[in-house]
Design a protein around this nucleic acid. Structure first.
Lengths: 231, 231
DNA sequence: CGTACCTTTGATGTGAATCAAGAGTAGTGG
DNA sequence: CCACTACTCTTGATTCACATCAAAGGTACG
């Protein structure tokens, strides 16, 4: 169970602990849980394609899911990597539009699909849920605005530093050690870099003494210094 | 009045015709109108700064407002240029966060400020309004996803072509003439280009015969050809 | 009619991608 | 346990799209 992959899952309890459903009554959570479906995905399996009609939204129970665009040259641009307790696909439910990205399992994974109809019903019944939903979408919107900001006015090295700082506990001032949540390849795509460039940036940051890299373990000897470079 | 600047405005009628308020009852629109404030802005005037606390959202009555980030070197990156009947700042109301961008009048302008409190009250009372709000945020979210896609996997020329196609009526297949909604400088920033690069791209597209440029008037002799290049 | 800003054009520079190997590092199966 | 394949990651050489720098028209407007 250290792999975070319990054989049996209590759907209702998972849903009730999602930020989106914190204020929703147990009875209503039970209803949602009853409406939802579990989907087992093998590593590399597609959950949906870009352009598929949106039937609902998804919650990751365990494993990792990436959202990405295909590019014409067969590359891809990863928009987000989602782990346990994270949800995606909410926004698309409120517009008659297909998914603007595709979703693929990065590792073996289990996701919950919550049908559009259940959500709409709950929205019409429970205004606190509607407010929670609005808050959720707003947060996502902010993070996209932040992405746009990053892409347009920060250098590749600054984006990498920003990413590392995001992964760290915020309060700490001194030495911190973190594990990258996924492969460097994926992180590169997330930051809009090639793997080569990411590797070189890590190398440079090591030379400067700002970080130490051992595989996926990154040690930051002095958070303050890293924050300064981030200006 | 050809300048789109009526001396007197009927706030309630403006609000009632906003996409967000289409389904809202006249009485509630009256309430919102009563709560709202008008703000006159001279060209270049700031409506709010990045980091200001969010007190509500805004609707452009006439004129143009740009949303942008300041960059460290005194440049700026324009995120959006808003014209009459467009609203902004909704998302930020639902999170306890300051504005992530600043808002500045591109031309003399009149905007309506609708206080957070009125919106929250209306949300709690009217579920169709909540759904409209969710739809509105979803659309904004999509367009940001689209921006991220553009920045990360399209060349500068492709972004320009995409922009031009967006400005055109969608159905037409043949010759179209459009007027750029704002200065080329602003459009360049919107597309994450320098003015120089935009100018050169327009020049190239003229050479290829794909467009003709006369100041802010752009003629597209053959929409099909332009769409093909956009692939 | 002059000042201020937008836009164009040209020359040069550079950050990051691409191309091309090699070095780890895992998983797989005999 | 060790080869065998398949990735992921690193490193170096080269290229290219776009920015930057510089200066000269255009255009609007008091």
């Amino acid at each position: 169970m250290a792999n975070g992959r319990p054989a049996q899952v209590d759907i209702a309890s998972i849903i009730s602990r999602l930020p989106l459903f914190l204020e929703v009554s147990p009875a209503q959570v039970q209803q949602i849980a009853a409406d939802s479906r579990q989907k087992r995905l093998a590593k590399g399996e597609m959950l949906f394609q870009k352009g598929d009609p949106a039937r609902g939204f998804f919650v990751v129970v365990w494993g990792q899911i990436k959202l990405a665009f295909p590019s014409s040259q067969g590359n891809e641009k990863v928009v987000q990597v989602l782990g346990p307790r994270q949800s995606f696909g909410e926004a698309v439910m409120f517009m008659d539009r297909p998914y603007p990205v595709y979703a693929e399992a990065v590792t073996d994974a289990l996701v919950l699909q919550i049908p559009r109809k259940s959500v709409i019903e709950l929205l019409e019944r429970d205004t606190t849920f509607a407010l929670a939903m609005l808050a959720g979408l707003s947060i996502r919107l902010h993070s996209l605005v932040h992405d746009v900001e990053s892409y347009s006015l920060r250098s590749s090295a600054q984006r990498v530093i920003g990413y590392l700082l995001q992964q760290c506990p915020h309060e700490g001032t001194d030495s911190v050690e973190i594990a990258l949540p996924t492969s460097k390849q994926l992180i590169a795509s997330l930051l809009n870099l090639t793997p080569e460039t990411l590797s070189r940036i890590f190398h440079d940051l090591c030379d400067t003494g700002l970080i130490e890299v051992h595989g996926r373990q990154i040690k930051i000897p002095d958070m303050r210094k890293l924050r300064e470079v981030d200006f």
